[in-house]
Write a protein that binds this DNA or RNA. Structure first.
Lengths: 132, 132
DNA sequence: GGATTATACTTGTATTATGCAAGTACTCTA
DNA sequence: TAGAGTACTTGCATAATACAAGTATAATCC
């Protein structure tokens, strides 16, 4: 399949054609939770994304309106657009599922518990920090 | 990267290594919203998954404890385990994002609005229907 | 302002995953 | 137990990814 052709108008299918790979949301995570903004910062993440894949994903996310890029070359930095900020609930849902079902998770139980019981508040706090 | 080796213990990474492709969650969707249970039913979905990919994803999901398989050959049918049922909030979050940001979405506004305003109730209803 | 250096990528190649067409195997029904 | 429907497997072409290496851009130093 070529990644660009739309398979259906199902909203889940739409989301998966944009986000359905193993790297895109990790970049979002780095921005939301680690405050990262630059290519090199993303590259340093534990999971070890390849340089060409990172460049490709950043390009797709900018084109897709999830990220905005400001500056060029050494000054380039990335931030979330409103469309990107709307991914916070998606990321939290995946974090909650992963933490619940991975017996070796590194996620602190207290954080997961807070996401579980005060989800909307957590979303609001993260948004405000990134917007302001 | 080989799909099986763990990149980190981040819960998001865990989730993405299991769910981070464009097909897995569509099968979950078919079970949750369309009540599908068999290979052929999954195969008929609008997006057009290939037979070998479907077989591979079903196998992975069974191995990963998301689906259980009952019967063999012509009697085989699949259903969600508790771990699979826990994916309902993930699917709903992705649906909400997709419906919000796809200008050509087929999702009825009323359904999306209900997910947005009564999320926990929707999750509970879907769970009960699938468990009972 | 030209050399230096850090950062942000691109390119090439091997490996792995996917898409498509065709074939095989299991099992229910009659 | 023969036939047909369902559930897959196999083979091959194309696309995506991983890894190593190289190039380009922009700030810094002299």
């Amino acid at each position: 399949m070529k990644r660009q052709d739309r398979r259906s108008r199902c909203p889940l299918n739409f989301s998966l054609q944009v986000l359905g790979d193993t790297w895109t949301l990790l970049v979002i995570r780095d921005i939301v939770f680690a405050g990262k903004r630059t290519y090199t910062e993303f590259l340093k993440s534990e999971e070890g994304i390849s340089t060409n894949i990172l460049a490709d994903r950043l390009r797709r996310m900018v084109t897709g309106g999830i990220l905005r890029k400001e500056g060029r070359g050494r000054t380039a930095h990335y931030s979330l657009t409103p469309k990107g900020l709307d991914l916070i609930p998606v990321v939290l849902a995946l974090i909650e599922w992963g933490a619940t079902h991975d017996p070796e998770t590194a996620a602190p139980a207290s954080v997961i518990e807070r996401i579980r019981t005060h989800r909307d508040e957590v979303v609001r706090e993260l948004r405000e920090r990134l917007e302001g």
